[in-house]
Design a protein around this nucleic acid. Structure first.
Lengths: 202, 202
DNA sequence: CGAATGACAAAACTTGAAATCTGTCAGCTG
DNA sequence: CAGCTGACAGATTTCAAGTTTTGTCATTCG
């Protein structure tokens, strides 16, 4: 019996699509490779032809999820306006996207946050991407005299770490509005004052 | 048969001592109220006379553990020197005490970190204490013209939140030395520059 | 001949019956 | 009689047997 699927050859992309859908429906605890294969109308052996282990498949799904945010972050990083304001926007966008997802679909977000805890590699790549965007904006701000920093990458890491509470899914239990907006505003006030160049002492 | 214990009447303090010791030996998952009672040579009914539920006993142990840090934090908060430096010292001491414990006795620290995740009330009290210390130092700095802040409590919360990565046990997996010392230094540079008053623009 | 299958062994999970634990309280004991 | 005990009911956890899942690979299919 051939359960052959309408949509062409089996590709990593089609598997990832089906895996994310299955994860969404059953949750990370209940999703098996056989479930994913069934959603595609193939045997589980075929899935293993493209992803050597279940952990690799899971990491690839997490990677896809994280990378979907990247265009939005690039956009605000490359926008117009003062460098400090663009740093704020990158951090805010990063946090806001996660808050929104976590509020709109808590189960899905929790599922992905749990997966992300295990999936070191894609998370490291995501952090690297965000820090690279911040570094670019800060370096530009330094060049224009809008931001004071001896080492733009160190400063980028510092603002990223200092706002961890707002974008790290591990802290999601504290994302209660409106308290979290206020906390972000308070932290940002301090960071912005730390970024701005000081006029030479009199 | 009386397994009567040498040391006087059963007090909450003696129970907490035994509970902490038992938790340390068996871990939070394997510790039962019966174990604690056995360590004291009493029946578990006697423990329930002093703590209405196991959760209350656990919270009291966590509370004791967190409060043991308080004298050290008060000491640096009340020390001499510039206000900003004392803010740094409070945050550093808070982080350092946790890093040290987590390195010296990882199992014990993990156990307590897990307990703390469930024990809302003592954790809130601990955060309140630390923020109160920071608020005092910042308010003093503002009075002396050493620190710029429109609202010392908001600023205290901001520096506390901005350093969450360094003192929140939930982030303990990232406490790898020496990377974490450097990350702290970078964040602090930014926060300090945000705290210092700016000379009036020319 | 490359892509896919499905039978298979080992590992990881599920299940439910037995054991243990929590929290109560009537009664004992010093 | 104040403080403690231990039997007890209901909730939770353990453990071993049974089931499912992962990952491999010889074989089949187009």
């Amino acid at each position: 019996m051939s359960t052959s699927n309408a949509s062409g050859p089996l590709t990593p992309e089609r598997i990832l699509e089906a895996a994310e859908e299955t994860l969404r429906r059953f949750g990370p605890a209940k999703t098996t490779v056989v479930d994913v294969a069934r959603a595609l109308g193939v045997s589980h052996g075929s899935v293993y032809r493209h992803f050597p282990t279940k952990a690799d498949l899971r990491d690839a799904v997490v990677d896809r999820w994280l990378q979907r945010m990247h265009p939005w972050l690039s956009a605000v990083a490359q926008g117009e306006g003062a460098a400090a304001e663009r740093v704020r926007l990158v951090l805010w966008t990063l946090a806001e996207m996660k808050w929104t997802q976590s509020q709109n679909d808590p189960e899905f977000f929790t599922a992905f946050a749990e997966l992300a805890e295990e999936a070191r590699t894609p998370v490291v790549a995501h952090v690297d991407f965000v820090v690279a965007q911040l570094t670019k904006v800060i370096a530009e701000g330094v060049a224009r005299g809008e931001i004071a920093s001896a080492d733009p990458r160190a400063t980028a890491l510092a603002v990223f770490d200092a706002t961890a509470k707002f974008h790290n899914p591990a802290a999601r239990s504290e994302w209660v509005r409106p308290a979290i907006d206020e906390a972000f505003a308070n932290v940002w006030t301090l960071l912005r004052d730390g970024l701005l160049p000081r006029p030479p002492a009199v």
